[in-house]
Write a protein that binds this DNA or RNA. Structure first.
Ligand SMILES: [Mn+2]
Ligand SMILES: [Mn+2]
Ligand SMILES: [Mn+2]
Ligand SMILES: [Mn+2]
Lengths: 134, 134
DNA sequence: CAGAAAATGTAGCCATAGCTATATTTATTA
DNA sequence: TAATAAATATAGCTATGGCTACATTTTCTG
């Protein structure tokens, strides 16, 4: 049996990356739907202040997930795209799983946004199987 | 349909309380199994430095979840007990649900530790039903 | 095209949760 | 019981992600 502390440290680890994942997934969506991802739209979608979005985008830029010129909209690097598409795939599996469990769209949507970051590959596979059999 | 930002703000909200929930649940376990909850054991169980555990316990104390005398072990207030027992109940439902989904104990244990904080009452009920029918 | 509005950026604040190093207190044991 | 070990506490640092207020730049519009 694994050490108890392992579970907690995995959760802490997930929390380090989840904001990044949500940002990148969202930027990809905005690029897809509107052709560009702007700070205003990111802030509005996440329900946070524009200054907060701007600061986080700065971090994502220095970490190489995102590119931008001053006062211009935001684009994903290759590294950023990869995480965005993986996150989107995972998000959809979790969302559909919750629907298949019998939940309404709103609840499935809300819960998926948090659960997605704490689902291991094994669990994701079980959810995907469950979705297929429904 | 709900606003997209609602999901994100609920997740942010969950993250404000989840460390508290894990601490209180753990303290209850330690009180139950060892008769007392000490900083060393909390730090060891969570896999963090003792100084970090001590600081968080200070916050829990000022927030009224926990009582302690200097250099002595930690006890739950009534407010703290309530959250501990609710958290434990919820944790067990999620853990058993993952087992019933077909996961091994280690994976179920690891994923439950994160997922538990992002499961609404509605979703929890669905999981509980699923457990009953298995 | 000038002025107003909108978007972006910066500064400075707060809270949380990590860490290491060190001080203090309590507990063990020789 | 005195010395040592263990546990607790404190100080000071980092990183993250919130916020408001304000500065700057871009965009819109009359
Ligand atoms: Mn999410
Ligand atoms: Mn997502
Ligand atoms: Mn947990
Ligand atoms: Mn989480």
């Amino acid at each position: 049996m694994l050490k108890k502390s392992m579970s907690f440290s995995k959760v802490r680890n997930a929390h380090k990356t989840e904001n990044t994942e949500d940002y990148l997934e969202l930027i990809a969506e905005l690029l897809n739907s509107k052709g560009e991802a702007r700070i205003v739209d990111i802030a509005e979608s996440l329900g946070i202040a524009q200054a907060t979005a701007n600061k986080t985008i700065q971090r994502l830029q220095t970490q190489g997930f995102v590119k931008r010129e001053p006062y211009r909209s935001i684009f994903l690097t290759f590294k950023g795209q990869k995480i965005a598409s993986e996150s989107k795939k995972r998000h959809n599996i979790v969302f559909n799983f919750l629907l298949n469990l019998g939940l309404d769209k709103n609840t499935a949507s809300e819960d998926a946004e948090g659960i997605e970051h704490h689902v291991s590959k094994k669990t994701l596979r079980k959810m995907d199987n469950f979705n297929s059999k429904k």
